[in-house]
Amino acid sequence: MTGRGGWLRGYAVLYLLFLYAPIILLPIFAFNDSTIIAFPLSDFTTKWFTEIPNTPALVRSVQTSLIVAVTTAVLSTLLGICAARAGARYSFPFKTPVMGFIMLPLVLPEIIVAVSMLVVLMALDLPLGSWTVVLGHTLICTPFCIAILNSAFGNLDVSLEEAAFDLGESRWSTFRLITLPLVMPGIISALLISFTISLDEFIIAFFLTGTEPTLPVYLWGQLRFPQKIPVVMALGTILVALSVVLLTIAEIARRRGIARAGGKDTGGFL
């Protein structure tokens, strides 16, 4: 087998290089003392990083994005807990179509979600703002949360809950004392994933944002001005570093959760 794995391994390394090419280039240009994003490189500089806090519009967009992302993460994880719990534990009429419909945004082009929500908001004459972005983001993040939480709730041993209930705990205290701690790693990982998706999402935010743009919408506006690009690269580097840290925590939480529930690691979020 190893002989055959040889060229496959070479291909896998090349493929990883292809996957990581943009991320490897990002910090290179972020520390490059030139407004032209091309080789050969000029001198090393950190001035693009120090320029970030001195750009008020950028700082405001980061704040908007953080508020939107945190709200989205909490809302979509709460909705995800309801759906995953209902899906794993109970049976009810029209279960498959209802669950399928909730998961639909996962396979719907985002532009469709964006324009159809825009049409309703226009028809109702409602003002656009951060809250409309939160609603749109919650819609697309909930299916991801459900996918993560499904395995957390699915791995849960029902007899543990029945034992607690049998020993006199109420339904709520059973959930709080037994179920919640067991699925907590799944919840943390769902929160982090939906936070990351919301922070990065562009199309829905682009259509539904009001006067306060989120970070990706602000960046989109900056990409037209060549002299602004290095600052975007610097900010991108920080974002990439941040996402890698958050994802690593999410992955550790997910693995710990599987280990705690005594399940087998099948790998990956999806």
């Binding site: 990883l16 996957l19 990581y20 943009p22 991320i23 990002l26 990351t196 990065d200 562009f202 990706p216 960046l219 989109w220 990409l223 975007v232 690269m233 991108g236 974002l239 990439v240 996402s243 890698v244 994802l247 990956g268 979020f269």
Partner: peptide, 11 residues
């Protein structure tokens, strides 16, 4: 394999 996918799409 999934890490690059979670970093800013726009960038």
């Amino acid at each position: 394999i999934t890490i690059p996918f979670w970093t800013s799409y726009l960038i």
